[in-house]
Design a protein around this nucleic acid. Structure first.
Lengths: 189, 189
DNA sequence: CATGTAGGCTATTATATATAGCCTTTTAGG
DNA sequence: CCTAAAAGGCTATATATAATAGCCTACATG
């Protein structure tokens, strides 16, 4: 019997695709195995469990999202950087709905790789906000506000929460503009 | 054999409790049945399926959230109404994490009860924004921005997305303040 | 070329939702 | 009241899921 030639990477990669296609919590190991041309128990030669596979997807999604945001912001600063990063954020989230959901799962305490990947995403956002010269808790608040706005919008959009037939792109532009306006008059200390 | 005296309402009510305790997608019919003192198949005398039970939870959650928001806003207008409604929104979401997630599930097309309940929540928000005299698409954009901000924040908070030990209440106050600042300089037409 | 290991497989287990069919309690009508 | 129908429990079972055990063979390494 010829081997399928699976690797941990190929399994996770195919699982990511399926998560984006049918949903992070809807895809099954049986369906994943079929796509990879093996029987379901064979997957366990490359993964420990469904939970560990989800965790692998999550860490990779966080790394990829961080890279995308960093690339979008490079060479820009201030409002320009926020606008570019925000558009990259939405685009990636909409194109990778399963991975985006996965990227929001908080790391298990003590999982330092996952914690690092999670932190890296927040760090990009923090860096982009650096131009506003916020310090200490003021900066933390600003990061939380920007994250909340972007995350809330793309989550609602992705789950079909915006029903009316009104241009969603314009609404997003106004959200970003609103955040910028708020940041420019951010309370200090 | 004495009867347990279940009703559709009691089943859904207990399911709501469990959803808030262990998570909307984690609670099982077997555990629900045990809490109600019956065997798992007996539940099917009162519900059609797990999906229909989830849908019942969802509709009731939307109705309850709508009521909570409406009560918070009554007798207030403008910025006061937004602040009061936003705090009620967060408080309800944090106290009812399972139901809150359920309330974000989009209705199935053609499910008019669910569609009405979903619309009602958005309508409260729209009413509260009425004081800003926004019209047409400007108003739609404002509703989407406010919803996105509140939803994003409470979702991140509820899922443990805010790691640092910095006062979350203050961050939320600043989010609301930011939205108000943005609304006061909202672009027209 | 021999051998150990890695990567497939079948068979099986445990737990989910869900259905079938039985039996008893409760309710409604004469 | 008494009886018949309906409602609400139950056991047994089917299907799908994640997961484990144990076998068998391809294949890399000495």
């Amino acid at each position: 019997m010829p081997r399928a030639g699976l690797t941990q990477d190929r399994v996770v990669h195919e699982a990511e695709q399926m998560a984006d296609e049918v949903g992070l919590r809807e895809f099954t190991l049986a369906a994943l195995a079929e796509r990879l041309g093996v029987r379901q128990p064979s997957l366990y030669k490359h993964i420990d469990s469904m939970a560990s596979l989800q965790r692998s997807i999550s860490v990779r999604a966080k790394v990829e999202l961080g890279d995308v945001l960093a690339r979008a912001a490079v060479g820009r600063s201030g409002n320009d950087a926020i606008i570019a990063m925000s558009h990259a954020y939405r685009q990636w989230a909409l194109r990778h709905p399963g991975r985006y959901v996965s990227a929001q799962v908080a790391p298990s305490p003590g999982d330092s790789d996952d914690e690092a990947a999670s932190l890296a995403v927040v760090q990009i956002i923090a860096d982009v906000l650096g131009a506003y010269k916020l310090e200490g808790d003021d900066a933390i608040d600003a990061i939380r506000v920007l994250r909340s706005s972007l995350h809330g919008f793309v989550t609602l959009e992705s789950s079909g929460g915006f029903q009316l037939n009104v241009d969603v792109n314009r609404s997003y532009d106004r959200l970003i503009r609103g955040v910028i306006v708020a940041l420019e008059s951010w309370p200090r200390q």
